[in-house]
Design a binder for these strands. Structure first.
Lengths: 349, 349
DNA sequence: TCGCGGACGGTAAACGATTTCTGCGAATGG
DNA sequence: CCATTCGCAGAAATCGTTTACCGTCCGCGA
């Protein structure tokens, strides 16, 4: 605290320094540097530019933000930045928004309500122009109230909110459509001629698994295929869960294909089926969901529904850009696409 | 630009608002809110706190940073935030530094010099208190000059630089010691009784592979084990590279164990060895390097040297904390540790 | 009684930009 | 030929803080 001033051996170069060197007022320098619409004579402009260049002038964003009330920053809340899901998403965001001059604050809540609130408040203090909820909301009533107050205050001051997850906060949204994406997988199998498709559902207390399960039933019925209980099994979102569920389905339902609620389960299913003597894909096809890097190096490279994580971020940024420019863009809707590898074939005749 | 003022329907609540409500001067409010050492009567303090609470006052960090010349932010340059390596590292940094009130700007250079420079300049403009180079430096002479100028200017103004990678920038360092870590693996195998250890080297034009290769030779000689060319093969840092190299080594050198320069190669090696009829670990042991998530779900779960990515970030943050407090902390040195799984056993007698 | 120091609070000058106003000379137009 | 407009530049207010500097009041020791 004491040596605050002595910290800067060399003086910061400010507008004033440039102005002195160029022998003009700071106003003029500001106008040149910030490309203001206010006219500046060509000769003057040149002098200013030269001076700025010579001093290595970098306008101070903080000062600028203070007066314009725009910080050109975006605060992003993720659950865990070391999770590639969020990594990809943040990358998509960043790649797209940086060209507009926005910079990202990234914060991992670690699924801890207190921590998330701390970050939200920090973002407010740093006057971010937009708040991105890439992390889904947490179960905690007190937290919910706080978040709502904060967001309301934030928006009442012109802040933009973007939601990229299952969240109670209302704002612009990029939504990955689990429903349609599940249908894509079902249609893909149906088009190949499969009529008895098994389904490995996730734990029913998770929104995602409920959505995917429901969508599966609808898609199957829409195509006029069989939906019955012997073709469906539940399990945890893990390799182990996939193994058990797959065995259960094959023993009871005689499927020609199995769709799993995520890749881990699909991998477990493959393993179990292989071990039980079924050939993949000749005897039975397997389809996953997510497209983890793992899917590619699996014993039988896995055909799966890709969740377009990067694009969620990217589309979010595009939406953000427009919202920040004062438009009112429509929400975005994304559906997965099939990544064909080697775990699927047409059913045997 | 036009509607800048109309953006804020509700006025921002500032020190002034609180001061008015509490009927004191802004100076007093500031002193209360920022826990200044300047004395404030208890009764006054209470009034201020109550007013602040009632208005939901959040001090504006930007304004504060402007006058204190401390933004409480840190700029981090990574190659690619979607790469779990950097994700882990950033997480470690964040987890440790956030308690001190610092927030992170995270930027992916994408290994593009221009882009990295753009971010570096932005960090300067945002007056970050510290710069973290988590990404290794790029090969580009012009870029190098620019970076050096920037960093020099940054430091001359009191900024702290932290380097967590192979980089020409001088600054505080957390260094992962490839040398000692390789020795750890060799010692581990030697302790189990292995005398003929094969080594799969990476491409010789990468610093990391050169270090690991050299360290392997040194460690082996130190233990008085055999080092000869028939036990060493080179390959690309990939599954394919590992396969070929492993086959080459077994055919020529009769090793009882193989150490690979990274997990991907080790996985490839395992696959190839298995396919060639060797049993792992009964006939031959395999050790990797990195500890990717993949290592755990491999056909034979891989024993490997863990690179403590999270700790690199974490130790970096600790170092940063001290440097920011004005101390001059020593650099940190980290070595990998063996993660035992199932690909290693003692050699057969 | 006087002087001094500490507690407490306020005034005002920064920090580094943007932007509104004003001023002035030159061009334009009726 | 005078009034108006336009191009261009500067002065000064402003954003929301922190903090150096001053006053005041009070208690206490000499």
């Amino acid at each position: 605290m004491s040596n605050r001033r002595t910290l800067s051996a060399r003086e910061r170069v400010s507008l004033r320094a440039v102005a002195e060197l160029a022998e003009v007022s700071v106003a003029t320098v500001s106008r040149v540097m910030s490309r203001s619409s206010h006219p500046v004579a060509d000769e003057t402009r040149k002098r200013v530019l030269a001076a700025a260049e010579r001093l290595g002038f970098q306008p101070n964003q903080l000062a600028r933000a203070l007066v314009t009330a725009r910080s050109q920053t975006v605060g992003v809340i993720v659950h865990d930045i070391s999770d590639p899901y969020f990594g990809e998403l943040v990358k998509g965001l960043e790649d797209e928004i940086r060209a507009d001059g926005y910079r990202l604050f990234v914060a991992s809540s670690d699924r801890n309500p207190a921590r998330e609130l701390e970050y939200l408040r920090a973002f407010e203090a740093y006057q971010v122009d937009a708040l991105v909820f890439a992390a889904s909301s947490l179960e905690d009533p007190a937290y919910r109230d706080e978040v709502e107050t904060l967001v309301e205050r934030f928006e009442s001051r012109g802040g933009i909110t973007l939601v990229l997850s299952e969240h109670f906060v209302e704002g612009h949204k990029v939504h990955f459509d689990n429903r349609s994406s599940t249908a894509v997988a079902v249609d893909y199998l149906a088009d190949l001629g499969h009529r008895r498709i098994g389904f490995i559902a996730g734990p029913p207390d998770l929104t995602v698994s409920r959505h995917r399960h429901q969508a599966f039933q609808e898609a199957v019925e829409k195509r006029g295929l069989t939906y019955d209980d012997s073709l469906v099994a539940e399990g945890s979102f893990s390799i182990e869960g996939g193994k058990r569920a797959a065995l259960e389905i094959v023993s009871g339902g005689e499927p020609t294909a199995i769709l799993a609620s995520n890749d881990l389960m699909a991998l477990g299913a493959s393993r179990a089926l292989l071990d039980a003597g079924h050939r993949i894909p000749q005897d039975i096809s397997v389809v996953g969901f997510d497209d983890l890097p793992l899917a590619e190096v699996a014993p039988v490279p896995l055909t799966t529904v890709r969740v377009p994580t990067y694009d969620i971020g990217r589309e979010g940024a595009i939406l953000l850009r427009r919202a920040l420019a004062g438009e009112d863009p429509d929400d975005v809707h994304l559906v997965g696409e099939i990544v064909e590898r080697r775990s699927v074939a047409a059913p045997r005749a």
